[in-house]
Design a protein around this nucleic acid. Structure first.
Lengths: 348, 348
DNA sequence: CTGAAAGCGCTTACAG
DNA sequence: CTGAAAGCGCTTACAG
């Protein structure tokens, strides 16, 4: 059931040359005279010949990179940024990105995880960039498949997987420490961190938060229980709980921007004003941050840059098989908008 | 420079059978005895053999679908939704999606447009789903390449390209007509449409808006000039201009949610309250809509469904080469949130 | 059911 | 510089 599309042999015959010559032309080989090149190119144009991509790459590289978004029902703007960065960078390096979803429960034995065929089969992708919610068993499975791997480190759960895999990450503890300092400088003393401790990225942030408070001899408030999957709901729940229960914080450090939005809702529900009654700092700088009211001061994580660095690191490791640098760091910085003020009853 | 990875021939030798038999096993052929199958499978496992994806598909189908996002510097949440829908659907149909950016200025002759190699070469993708900002010349180029094509119709500029291409679209005029009626029912008389008429999707919406106003004998206000590329800025500019210049509208129909947010800003800057002083309805229902203050009433366009329908339609056309249905419609519906109220001085 | 052989469309030593 | 031939890893008639 092959369509009668023309192949290199027919081009060769039409041009009155050998197939090797046609091959050299389409591959831009130097071993060919200008006259011959022009002649063959003319025939190629006339016949509208396009070489078959798969056949060309049976030996050699597919130039395809797998971008795996693990365990995510939805492509949020943050991961969309990573994907876009990866695609841009891949394109400039003559590679292409296959976008792949993958679900794999944390408890599954690596051997039993079934991945998309593009990953299971050999020859499709040269390597994989791994993002989303990444459990060690997925990494183990990908290693079994002998796929060169770069993971967005902050998305991965702790485990014994680092060997042989490239990482791009930001220092969440450091960033959140700086955010806490920023609040402390502005006079806040009752500061709360909000983020489900079931996730490593939130735990890491919280460590930085604790570090800052300890340094200043302040008592840290935290809300780290597991709750609703929806981050907005989680933030609202956390806010309501904390405001009703204990000494009300004058400032909140939210694990991400959606949690921050949930906190806004809780605050508003209790007639507290942001930032008049309570300050809030988010994390990630997703698209919603600038649009919230007041605009959210937040820690910007450069998503596009992360995507770009992931594919760049992957290709470095592919080429220099001598295991290039294991971890690359990108920096996360506070972007000041309108959700922080000194607490009430204190000179600005 | 071939890595010494094992191939079908070696498996056959190790199993003491012919390569055809191994081939049948990995392809799940029925023409094989259970005993033989088990034996070969054991050898495959022992040798950790994985067939080469590219070689398998030289004849036959690549199972790859190109998802092209044209002329977009950024993957917005709306298109991210389409992509995610496409990937989900593709996966369930055993296909994979290659995410591709493409820039091509509207004026370029089709012959001169250079696309990613994955599209230029034959055999990579079985077909293309086209979204973003789509000019007719890009469609023409893709047709030259004989790539089966489904476009998200609302993203495409008018032109003589419809023949032979599948489309998925929503009825923007109808949706915006309904949105206008919704405002009229609530007592609004001075209603403005805001959206750059340079873009066909805004023009289509505006037609629906005009239809509704005409039906009720109302005078339509419109802001359709070309302005800043950034939609938020565009909305702000439109809002400020209209509020300063003419009879102030009591309600705005924004071409998309970001324009609506720009209108919020303009209104706030002039100390007008939403929805107290002016109502606003957005379009698309992007992620920011629910997060705006007040939450934006908007027309929801089912982005994931669009992505899914695009790949489904593409595969139908691939299989039944008898040109299956040309255009599929999805419905866009108003989602009521908090940005609409009856105008001042009128009973609710 | 199974295997030897021809074939898919290309690339790449090798010889000239 | 150019071409005939062998090779890439797989699939698929064909014959048994």
């Amino acid at each position: 059931v092959k369509s009668p599309s023309i192949n290199i042999r027919e081009v060769a015959r039409a041009a009155g040359v050998g197939v090797a010559t046609v091959s050299r032309v389409i591959n831009g080989s130097k071993l060919i005279s200008p006259a011959m090149r022009e002649h063959v190119e003319a025939v190629i144009r006339r016949l509208n010949f396009r070489p078959h991509a798969l056949a060309r790459r049976i030996l050699g590289h597919s130039q395809l990179i797998g971008f795996v978004l693990a365990n995510r029902p939805f492509l949020h703007s943050f991961h969309a940024g990573i994907l876009q960065g990866a695609e841009n960078c891949a394109r400039s390096l003559k590679r292409h990105v296959v976008f792949l979803g993958a679900e794999c429960p944390p408890g599954a034995p690596p051997g039993e995880i079934v991945l998309p065929p593009v990953l299971e089969e050999k020859g499709w992708v040269e390597g994989v960039v791994l993002t989303g919610v990444v459990y060690p068993n997925l990494i183990a499975r990908l290693k079994e498949l002998e796929l060169p791997l770069v993971v967005f480190g902050n998305n991965a759960f702790e485990g014994d997987w680092a060997e042989g895999v490239g990482q791009v990450r930001y220092d969440g503890a450091q960033a959140e420490c700086a955010a806490a300092e920023y609040l402390i400088e502005r006079g806040h003393r009752a500061i709360a961190y909000v983020g489900d401790a079931a996730f490593p990225w939130f735990r890491e942030q919280r460590r930085g938060f604790l570090r800052a408070l300890r340094r200043h001899g302040l008592h840290p408030l935290s809300f780290t229980q597991s709750g609703p999957d929806d981050h907005v709901e989680y933030g609202r729940w956390a806010g309501e709980t904390m405001l009703k229960a204990g000494p009300a914080p004058t400032a909140f450090l939210a694990g991400n921007d959606e949690i921050a939005f949930g906190l806004y809702r809780a605050l508003r529900g209790l007639h507290r004003h942001v930032p008049g009654d309570a300050s809030v700092i988010g994390f990630d700088d997703r698209q919603i941050a600038a649009v919230m009211d007041p605009p959210l001061t937040t820690v910007r994580v450069p998503s596009q840059e992360i995507g770009c660095r992931c594919v760049r690191l992957l290709l470095e490791r592919l080429e220099g098989s001598g295991e290039s640098s294991d971890t690359q760091w990108v920096s996360a910085e506070l972007v000041e908008r309108g959700s922080v003020k000194p607490p009430r009853g204190r000179a600005g």
